[in-house]
């Protein structure tokens, strides 16, 4: 893989049609314009490293969104284990673009943030593959036929996997243990 000037144009052309979808998906997950941009940046870095593969895949948007969901779950894990971030809600409460756009009262926003945090923690527990498959279908609106072509799995298998994953998600959300933060010290200089 070469990182040459011509690659820049090639990569930009590849990414442009999908950028809005990526950026909006990132906003849903991070609830912050700055964090959404960082998340999309991570996706672009990874996509750039695999630009040859990206050019070949038929469903580029699904391929890119899958990377985005995987990366988001990784970031969630890192944050949950970081003592620095334990006090943070994950939302950028100072970002005017993300406050009360739909007329919600602050209390409603706080409640929604808590609910979303719980959902994202549950998605983390479900794992990369299950979470991203469910998100592609239920959030991004990919049809079963599109998912069949993306994953190569038969439609019947996809249906049962999606149903099982939804049920697992529902069970996790009804489990109070998921609301407890995980505190693990990581990092440090090598």
């Amino acid at each position: 893989m070469k990182w040459l000037g011509s690659d820049k144009n090639r990569f930009t052309e590849l990414m442009q049609p999908h950028f809005d979808a990526l950026y909006m998906a990132a906003q849903r997950m991070t609830r912050s314009a700055a964090d959404a941009e960082d998340l999309v940046q991570d996706v672009c870095l990874k996509a750039h490293m695999h630009i040859d593969e990206l050019e070949k895949v038929e469903f580029q948007r699904a391929w890119l969104l899958k990377i985005l969901y995987h990366r988001f779950i990784d970031i969630q894990r890192t944050r949950e284990r970081s003592p620095v971030d334990m006090a943070e809600t994950g939302a950028d409460s100072n970002d005017p673009d993300f406050l009360g756009r739909d007329g919600s009262k602050p209390d409603d926003l706080v409640e929604r943030e808590k609910r979303l945090e719980t959902v994202f923690r549950a998605m983390e527990i479900l794992g990369h593959e299950a979470s991203s498959l469910l998100a592609l279908h239920d959030i991004e609106g990919f049809s079963l036929e599109e998912l069949r072509q993306v994953t190569g799995l038969p439609e019947g298998t996809l249906k049962s996997r999606l149903h099982r994953t939804r049920a697992r998600l529902g069970r996790l959300l009804s489990n109070q243990d998921i609301h407890k933060p995980v505190l693990t010290v990581v990092g440090g200089k090598k």
Partner: peptide, 17 residues
């Protein structure tokens, strides 16, 4: 449980962007 799960995903989907 699956209904609770799909409703949670729709909450994520319906956020303003």
């Amino acid at each position: 449980d699956a209904l609770r799960g799909v409703r949670a995903m729709l909450v994520v989907r319906d956020q303003a962007t």
